[in-house]
Amino acid sequence: MFNYTIRRTLLAIPTLFFISLVLFLLLDLAPGDPTAQLPLTIPPEVREKIRLALGLGEPFHIRFLLWLEQFFINEPLHLLTELTGVDFSGDRQRVISWQSRSPVMDIVVQRLPQTLWVVGMSYVIGTIIALPIGIISAYRQYSWFDQIGTFVSMVGFSIPTFFTGVLLIVIFSVHLGWFPSIYDTTHVVTDWSSLIVQIKQMIMPTMVLALYNAAQISRFMRASMLDNLNQDYVRTARAKGLRENVVLLVHVLRNSMIPVVTVIAIGVPTVFGGAIITEQVFKVNGLGQLLITAIQANDIPMVQTLTFIFAVLIVLFNLLADILYGILDPRIRYE
């Protein structure tokens, strides 16, 4: 297992390098211009100067190598400096956003809390809701509970979050006035009442996303349970005279969880990717909103860095899912 992990990790390096190259090429070839959003009153000569100041004058390979150096050498050194207080990074150039002219990683770190709070929480809540729904739906297949579960999942799957989000805002913010429609990222939880405020502003975006996550995971859970419920070993368990909840929760659930756990693990990077649409709708301004504004402004260093971080997370969590699979399923052994 250990060797397997090491080997997979090493294999990820060329994969990630290739991904970064492709990302860079794609971004470079894509039409668009960082000065596009500036008013037309700014004359072309000035625009050209801005572009040159951003480093766009350099040829492609130079910019790519520069980014590699900034991302893989300068940023980690800077992190080390931050952590230890000893100056490792010197005046090495970090990855700088074209929009804000500030280090990309600083902004990413700034955005992480709200993304983790809202999107991460919705993933956790979605999972917590989904598992029992999936279990009961499968155990009582075709019952009214299962039918309702199927319907709600369909709704969660097929209705886009920009619709459910706006619907919730219209109902709970405009008409009832219970929750704010705009997320306050500066809010700090210090005591009980500020915690209530935080919960209130999190409820709507979290629920919108949780519905979507729950829809997916509950379907998976249900299918996996159904697969296992008809297995012979379940009959064996019943023949042993075990109580039904032991049969269900110990025998069936444990085996059904194997694929579900890996699906959940593979889904974690999407949390870090943020939820572009939901973040926009509720003005959560997390990583998703950061990415979309960067794309709109053609802020290539920001887009490149963010997408690359997502790629790393995806590779990482896929690896993690594989390892989890091996741990959970004794039949699988990685050499």
Binding site: S173, S181, I182, Q280, K283
Partner: peptide
């Protein structure tokens, strides 16, 4: 002053004209 950014014009209009948050 809190100077918040993000979202879209519709949501901004709603926050001032309909919910009164801004």
């Amino acid at each position: 002053v809190t100077f918040k950014g993000g979202g879209d014009a519709t949501a901004a209009g709603r926050a001032v004209l309909e919910t009164g948050e801004f």
